[in-house]
Amino acid sequence: MDIEDVPITGDMIRLGQLLKYVNVAESGAHAAAIIGSGDVSVDGEVETRRGRQLTRGMVVTVAMPQGEQTFRVT
C-alpha cells in the first residue's frame, strides 16, 4: 500500500481540510459528502465527522472509484 505523507504546519488539521488539501475533495461540501458516505477511515476506523481533528502520525484512507488512497499526516 502506498502512503502519501502530508506535512502540516500547525498541531492539527481537520479531516475536511485534509481532503481538500490533497485534492480528493473540490470543496468543503464535497468533502462532507465523501466523508458522510462512509468511504473515509482514520487509523482503520470509518470516520463520518468532517471536523475530526487529525494530528501527526494519523493515517487517512479514502475509498475512491480508482482504488484506495492513503495519507499520513506528518
Rank of each mutant, 00 (worst) to 15 (best):
A29L: 03
A63R: 15
D39P: 05
E68Y: 09
I8Y: 07
A32F: 06
R56K: 13
G44H: 03
R50W: 10
A31V: 01
V6G: 00
A63D: 14
P65R: 04
V60L: 08
R49Q: 15
D2G: 07
I34S: 04
T48S: 15
E4V: 02
A31D: 02
G28D: 01
V22A: 03
I3C: 09
E26F: 03
D11V: 05
D5W: 08
L18C: 00
E4Q: 09
V60T: 04
M12H: 14
V73T: 06
G67I: 04
Q66D: 15
D2W: 04
I3Y: 08
I34Q: 04
Q66C: 11
R49I: 09
T61A: 15
V40C: 08
A29Q: 07
R56H: 08
Y21D: 07
L54N: 04
A32R: 10
A25W: 04
Q69K: 14
M64W: 11
L19P: 03
T55I: 14
L54K: 06
T61S: 15
E68M: 10
L54D: 02
K20R: 10
I35T: 09
R50I: 14
I8V: 10
V46I: 14
K20C: 03
G44P: 04
D39C: 14
T9D: 13
T48G: 11
Q66E: 14
A31K: 01
D11E: 12
D43I: 00
E47V: 10
A31N: 03
D39N: 15
L54P: 03
H30I: 05
T70G: 11
A33Y: 01
T61Y: 10
F71M: 01
T55Q: 15
I34P: 07
Q53D: 09
M12S: 14
E4Y: 00
T74L: 14
G28W: 02
T70N: 11
A29K: 02
R49L: 14
L15A: 07
T9F: 14
V24K: 01
G57V: 05
A63V: 12
G51M: 05
S41A: 13
I3H: 08
G10E: 12
V42T: 06
E4S: 05
G28Y: 02
M64K: 09
R56S: 12
V42C: 11
G36N: 09
V60S: 06
G67K: 04
Y21S: 09
I13Q: 05
V60P: 03
I13N: 04
G10M: 07
G67V: 04
A25I: 00
P7F: 03
G57T: 04
D43C: 07
V24T: 01
T74G: 14
V59E: 11
A25T: 00
T9M: 13
Q66Y: 15
I3P: 10
V22R: 02
I35C: 10
M64A: 10
I3A: 07
